[in-house]
């Protein structure tokens, strides 16, 4: 997976979003060890302090846990992961509904279209 950083928004927030997504989708496996700040920073081509800030936020979210001995690991708590996936799904739904509203579909119409949609329709 590549790091994709855009202009105009704080870099740490974008890193935080992308790390959250990686954890939610299981790229970083539940309970496993996270790469170090330096490794992540080098991979993304960003300043280690910026990466540190993103990781601190992940920790505050409960998605990663720092143990004195094992270093930083992905949370083992399924409820946190479920809640995160749900929150991300809500974001995607909101984007979908906003776009559909722009095209003139009500929420109910949008939901119905979604139900009946087949891959071939596009």
């Amino acid at each position: 997976m590549n790091w994709n950083l855009s202009d105009g928004r704080p870099i740490w927030q974008q890193l935080h979003e992308q790390l959250t997504l990686r954890i939610a989708t299981g790229s970083y496996v539940r309970g496993s060890k996270m790469p170090t700040v330096r490794e992540l920073a080098a991979e993304a081509g960003v300043n280690p302090n910026t990466m540190q800030r993103a990781l601190a936020q992940l920790e505050a979210d409960g998605l990663v846990v720092t143990n004195r001995t094992a270093g930083r690991t992905v949370t083992d708590d399924e409820s946190v992961l479920t809640a995160t996936r749900r929150r991300l799904a809500h974001g995607t739904i909101k984007t979908y509904l906003d776009q559909m509203a722009l095209l003139g579909f009500t929420r109910a119409e949008a939901a119905e279209l979604l139900q009946t949609w087949e891959e071939e329709d596009t």
Binding site: D7, G8, P10, W12
Partner: peptide, 15 residues
């Protein structure tokens, strides 16, 4: 800080 600039200005440092 670069992030403070992006946050306040809503644009990159380059912009």
């Amino acid at each position: 800080s670069v992030d403070a600039i992006r946050e306040e200005e809503g644009k990159s440092v380059d912009a």
